Simulated assay, not measured.
Amino acid sequence: MLWIFAAIIILALFSIITYNRLIAKRNAVANAWAGIDTQLQRRYDLIPNLVETVKGYMEHEKTVLENVTKARTAFMNAGNVKEQAEAENMMAGALKTLFAVSENYPDLKASQNFMMLQEELAGTENKISYSRQRYNNSVMDYNTALQVFPNNIFANMFNFKPADSFAVESEEARKAVRVQF
């Protein structure tokens, strides 16, 4: 009878430890996403300044500026990780195009405001890249914890769901931007 009681206690302790470990990993994923979200928000806060700086120089490339604005709007309206990742991919492509087109405007490239914004965006892009990697590592760690035995039993029992990675979805987003005139 004592060994049954001991087995129940051990099983209860194991359940509590496993549950707490899964909660900690899920919270690490949420924290890592918050890091991405902060950097993306910083980038999207810089965009209106960049657009205003560039507007006067790029009269003929209105579609480039419109794409940047559309991507910013898509990010602001995104409701989940997948939608934010899609908006992020759209913005990355729009910014690549914007900076590629800016090469054709020597006055713009020499503008102190443009150079400063470009530098701030480059630093933010590096932080976004780091935050993405951290988030994806947290997602991998969390999802692995959900799948290994015996955690998978407890994960199903407590209704833990896998998290989505933040990845480039399309082949188009992976390609370098080509601008031809």
Rank of each mutant, 00 (worst) to 15 (best):
D45I: 04
D45R: 05
D45P: 05
D45G: 00
L46H: 00
L46G: 10
I47Q: 01
P48G: 14
P48S: 11
L50V: 12
L50F: 10
L50E: 01
V51A: 06
E52H: 13
T53I: 11
K55N: 03
G56R: 08
Y57H: 14
E59G: 12
H60Q: 13
K62P: 05
K62C: 08
V64R: 01
L65N: 06
L65P: 01
L65Q: 06
N67A: 12
T69N: 00
T69M: 10
T69W: 07
K70H: 07
K70W: 09
A71L: 02
R72K: 14
T73K: 08
T73Y: 09
N77T: 11
N80K: 10
K82C: 04
K82P: 02
E86H: 10
E88C: 03
N89T: 10
M90Y: 04
M91A: 06
A92L: 12
A92M: 13
L95E: 00
T97L: 15
A100V: 08
V101H: 05
E103K: 06
D107T: 12
L108V: 10
K109Q: 13
S111Q: 07
Q112C: 10
F114I: 09
F114T: 03
F114R: 00
M115W: 00
M116P: 01
L117I: 13
Q118T: 11
Q118E: 13
E119Y: 08
L121G: 04
L121Q: 01
T124S: 02
T124V: 15
E125G: 07
E125L: 09
N126G: 15
K127W: 06
I128N: 00
I128H: 00
S129F: 09
S129E: 09
Y130A: 15
S131H: 02
R132T: 05
R132D: 06
Y135E: 01
Y135R: 01
N136M: 05
N136R: 03
N137Y: 07
N137C: 06
S138T: 03
V139L: 03
M140R: 13
D141M: 03
D141P: 04
Y142F: 15
Y142E: 07
Y142R: 02
T144M: 08
A145I: 01
Q147F: 05
Q147T: 11
V148P: 07
P150A: 00
N152Y: 13
I153T: 12
F154I: 14
A155D: 02
N156V: 11
M157T: 13
M157N: 13
D164Q: 13
D164I: 04
D164V: 06
S165N: 12
F166R: 00
F166L: 11
E169G: 08
S170V: 01
E171I: 15
E171Q: 15
A173Y: 04
R174E: 09
R174C: 06
K175E: 07
A176K: 06
A176W: 11
V177S: 07
V177M: 11
R178V: 11
Q180S: 11
